[in-house]
Amino acid sequence: MNHFPEAWGRPRDDVYGPYNPSYLQTTGPKTHTQSPAVTGSSILGIKFNGGCVLASDNLASYGSLARFTDVKRLRKFGDTALVGFSGDISDMQYIDRLLDSIDIRENYSAHGNTLNAKNLHTYLSKVLYKRRSEFNPLWNHILVAGFDDDKKPFLSSADLLGTTFSAPHLATGFGAHLALPILRRLFPEERPIEEISKDEAVAALRECLKVLWYRDARSLDKYTIAVITAQGIEIQEDQQVEAQSWAFAETIKGYGAQVN
């Protein structure tokens, strides 16, 4: 028997013939960064009178496997901004470390951290754009919430290409298809942000997360919801989707094997 390590785990030469090393790709471009591995689903965000809310579930999927069920995908930056990440979890953790080091650097200066959510969003969009230009993108879609230079509520998104987009309500991933129509119906364009209360905004996002839990196969009924106002940041982790009703499920037809 061949005890050399390079033979471990390979078909035996005496049974299958010598191993053809051309199957082991040793040259060619790196490809493992060109698709995400462990991913988080939707991030939801909405502006209200005097602040913003972000919400996301606590799931990190490995393909279709619900791999980690207590991953917090919302973080705060100092007391000035909230950031929500969907997409690749390890890239999220990398950006998380970037933000930590900026936060430390900022707090060394005489006046402390003066970066607001708008500054942070500009920075993150540049980071994402730089990485996509190197053909090594950070596989995330990010929402940043907080306040701009004029102390008005700020909510904006940046994706893995460095594209930025801003709106009174935003959602990434499946939420862009399932939650946004609900939010647009609840808070139509004609209704100014000043008329939307914090409680109303929070309730709307909880409702949207329930819909996502019903219909997005990569979602979870445990979630985090974070509110930023001039008074500060309030993050509620380990929330549970309440008052579920699966009655509608029986009426769904057309997915998979069904007899009648």
Binding site: S109, H111, T114, L115, K118, T122, K126
Partner: peptide
């Protein structure tokens, strides 16, 4: 101004 959209703090 480019990376943060913020004027550079003087002490920095």
């Amino acid at each position: 101004r480019m990376t943060y959209g913020r004027p550079l703090p003087v002490d920095r």
